[in-house]
């Protein structure tokens, strides 16, 4: 990246100045969660863990414990990822390799669905879930979220499968393996970077999903962190902003950690290559 005839410090300087407000905001967000500030002052002056009390105190009556909600969010994100990824790797393979009838129609359909603003479907989804009794349940939101992310997942996995040389499959068949063994043992390992990237992507997307849980499972035991957070600020008579920020940080922490660990895999989604 850095060649000798290209001085990088002016660039860094400009980038630093531009991103400064963002950085300050984040720093304040974090600092505010562990301090108290005297009214009218900008500088925090007391250290406190009071705003994090939701982690260990019994919830007020009518409220769910943060740990239940976190577990819900975790189940929601994990199940969505599992369903989405397993459907994407099979459907993507089929569209990439198998001689399906109506293949062009399916491909076109997937692209269209991907571009489709899903929010317009929410009313009908709501009605359907209510009809089949999955309204206000975690399973309902999981199914809906997994399905809505599916076009993107299938499309990405198809791209990865397209890059696997077909000779590898032919060699596998010739070596006596069944179609399934070839797919499972020879092809799937080649697209493993794609699977990893898609998993992280869907997990994060589900973790930060707000609209769907808000509309389809707004209250009670099916709550997730995003809805919990919004309830916190709307329900209370006297909102505690610093606690709100603490819950926010708590909610964002896994996302940040996952990004830090998996950012290389996430890049793969856009590369679409088999290198990894």
């Amino acid at each position: 990246m850095t060649s000798s005839n290209f001085r990088s410090w002016p660039l860094y300087l400009i980038l630093t100045v531009i991103s400064m407000p963002l950085v300050i905001m984040y720093v304040y967000l974090f600092v505010d969660t562990v301090t108290d500030t005297t009214a009218g002052s900008l500088i925090p002056d007391r250290f406190t863990l009071h705003h994090w009390r939701f982690l260990w105190e019994e919830p007020e009556t009518g409220r769910v414990s943060i740990w239940t909600v976190t577990l819900n969010t975790f189940i929601f994100a994990t199940c969505t990822t599992l369903i989405n990824v397993s459907a994407s790797v099979t459907a993507g393979y089929a569209l990439s390799r198998l001689n399906l009838p109506f293949k062009r129609f399916f491909l076109g359909g997937i692209l269209t669905l991907h571009a489709f603003p899903t929010i317009t479907l929410i009313i009908s989804i709501f009605l359907i879930l209510q009809m089949i009794g999955l309204y206000n349940t975690l399973i309902g939101v999981i199914l809906v979220k997994a399905a809505l992310e599916l076009p993107l997942g299938i499309w990405i996995m198809k791209g990865f499968f397209d890059n696997v040389p077909w000779e590898i499959e032919m060699a596998g068949l010739q070596d006596g393996a069944s179609r399934f063994t070839v797919w499972w043992k020879l092809v799937l390992p080649q697209v493993q970077p794609g699977v990893a990237a898609l998993s992280v992507f869907v997990f994060l997307s589900a973790w930060s999903e707000f609209i769907l849980p808000q509309v389809l499972a707004p209250s009670g035991s099916a709550q997730v962190l995003s809805t919990y957070l919004s309830n916190l600020i709307f329900d209370d008579m006297k909102p505690d902003f610093n606690m709100f920020k603490s819950v926010g940080v708590f909610y964002a922490l896994p996302v940040i950690i996952i990004y830090l660990i998996f950012n290389k895999q996430l890049m793969n989604i856009y590369g679409g290559g088999t290198k990894g």
Binding site: P165, I168, A171, G172, Q174, P189
Partner: peptide, 19 residues
């Protein structure tokens, strides 16, 4: 079927399993 023919094939790009 291919699997049952007991034929060994060497492909032009070798098609080794990279993983």
């Amino acid at each position: 079927s291919s699997q049952k023919r007991n034929v060994g094939v060497v492909f032009q790009n070798y098609a080794l399993y990279p993983h």
